[in-house]
């Protein structure tokens, strides 16, 4: 019951919901393989980023 008191106002509840949603969607992104796409882009020089390609 004391644990639930932390959600005493709407903002705290919204923060907890956003955090939980963030963790779940981030995990979903990892499961879907997005991390590999990010890694493949990041480990090679991005020619667009540096103004070449």
């Amino acid at each position: 019951m004391r644990f639930l008191q932390i959600f005493h106002n709407k903002r705290t509840f919204a923060q907890a919901a956003l955090l939980l949603g963030g963790v779940l969607t981030l995990i979903l992104g990892v499961v879907c393989g997005e991390v590999r796409t990010v890694l493949m882009k990041a480990i090679y020089i991005c020619l667009e980023c540096i103004g070449i390609g």
């Binding site: 969607t25 879907c32 997005e34 882009k41």
Partner: peptide, 27 residues
């Protein structure tokens, strides 16, 4: 850059990884 990398990939139409990342860091 990572968000653009995922969205510009033919494989994805939405980035759960970056959406979740922004939710956590932003919150």
């Amino acid at each position: 850059g990572a968000l653009q990398a995922v969205l510009s990939s033919a494989k994805y139409q939405f980035s759960f990884y970056l959406f979740g990342f922004f939710l956590i860091i932003g919150t």
